[in-house]
Simulated scan of single mutants.
Amino acid sequence: MVKLSVIVPFYNVQAYAPDTLASLRANAREDFEFLLVDDCSTDGTPEILERAERELPGAVLIRHERNGGLATARNTGLDAASGAYITFLDGDDWLAPGHYERLLAAAEELGVDFVRTDHVQCTARERKVFRVPVGRRNEVLRPRDAILPADRSTSVDYPMAWAGIYRRELLDRGLLHFTDGLRTAEDRPWIWRLHRGAESFAAVGLLGIFYRRGVASSLTQIGDVRQLDFIRAFDQVLEETANDPESGRLLPKAVRTYCAVISHHLGSIERFEPSVARKLRSMSADALHRMPQDILKDALDGMDGERSSRLRRLRRRATGTPAVSGAAGAA
């Protein structure tokens, strides 16, 4: 019986894949499987993965015939997973030896639906620890309660799928798949759905995941139109949260987070191609108009002056697109 399925998408990461695969070898166990999803790479990555399938214990190579993006590649891995627990790793990141065994032990001991863990961000030679924004560690908690408060960083603001481990029952209940085709912010609707739908979770302080930041091929470093998928991702968060029985309690957090992300992108708009920058302004203005306006007003009133002013100026550009159905009334 497979105890843990690790889903690892790869796309044009030939410079980093050997480190990732070596760290998986240092985490191998006879009841672990590593689902290596090649998302139609065009460099030397496929050959590296072919060798890994032969040499890495538990490795299973899955190939896409066309590039689908990270969300689609993760879904391919989920569809093939057979483990009692599931986790993720990106093809340019790496792990400390034995990390998965320790993470699995924590999940089994706590007996929760999922566990979230800290990680180390690596930018060139710099190392920086990022913590799950949950104060109580190694305790069984209610995921919905960790969404709030609206005006502070919470668990849904730490959306990285690879920073945790998840019971298979969550997959069977439809809580682990990603929105197919999202090219960026794919973790945002996912983490919100997970916290609304799961019954229990815990945060632990294991530091065994090393996230490689600043990779030139990473979409977060590319200012093309795919970056604008964050609009579609957060529209989904708002729509699904508006349909939640506790929408009045949860929507202020969703709106405030959406506003913060829009402001972040506008604040670094120079990194986008000119046509994409224009589209970013237009789509963001429309997004502000779609939000429940009473909740939006409260969110803007509670933000710092710079971000609030930026969004208020943008709001005046908004067209007549209707607000999220039923959201304002629910609030």
Rank of each mutant, 00 (worst) to 15 (best):
D92E: 12
N75G: 00
L70Q: 05
P57S: 04
A52K: 09
G77F: 01
P57R: 02
E53P: 07
P46K: 08
P149Y: 06
E109N: 08
A52E: 04
E108A: 05
E139T: 08
L35V: 08
F32W: 13
G83C: 04
V115N: 01
R66M: 04
A124D: 08
A28F: 09
R137N: 03
P46M: 03
A96D: 14
C122Q: 12
I86C: 07
R136G: 00
P143M: 08
V140L: 11
R102Q: 05
G111K: 06
V120F: 03
A73S: 15
D113G: 12
A146K: 09
T117Q: 05
T117E: 13
L103P: 05
P97N: 06
R131W: 11
G77M: 04
A124I: 05
V37Y: 00
R102Y: 01
H119D: 07
F34M: 14
G83E: 10
G58S: 05
V115Y: 04
L104N: 01
E30Y: 09
Y85F: 14
F34C: 11
D145K: 12
K128T: 11
E47T: 14
D38F: 13
G98W: 02
I147N: 01
A106R: 14
I86P: 02
S82P: 03
A73C: 03
L49M: 12
D145R: 13
A59C: 10
S82C: 12
L148G: 15
F32P: 12
R127V: 06
F130K: 12
A59Y: 08
F88H: 12
R131A: 14
L49A: 07
E50K: 14
L61M: 12
G135E: 14
V112S: 01
E101H: 11
L49D: 03
H99F: 15
D31E: 15
I86M: 04
F114T: 03
A124T: 13
R102S: 07
N75I: 06
R74M: 08
R29T: 05
P133D: 00
L70F: 09
T123D: 09
E109R: 14
V115D: 10
L141A: 02
R66S: 12
L95Y: 07
R131H: 14
R66C: 06
E139H: 07
L89R: 12
R142I: 09
W94C: 11
F88K: 07
S41K: 12
H99Y: 15
R29D: 15
V37W: 00
D118A: 06
L89H: 03
G83T: 05
H99S: 12
V134P: 03
P143L: 07
G68N: 11
F130S: 13
D38N: 15
R74E: 00
R136P: 00
E30I: 13
R131D: 07
V112W: 02
V140I: 08
I48L: 15
V140E: 13
N75L: 01
R131T: 15
F88S: 10
L141H: 04
R127D: 01
A80R: 13
D38M: 07
E33S: 13
Y100S: 04
G83I: 08
A73H: 01
D90E: 15
E50S: 15
L141D: 09
G91R: 06
E101N: 07
D31L: 14
G135N: 13
D113A: 03
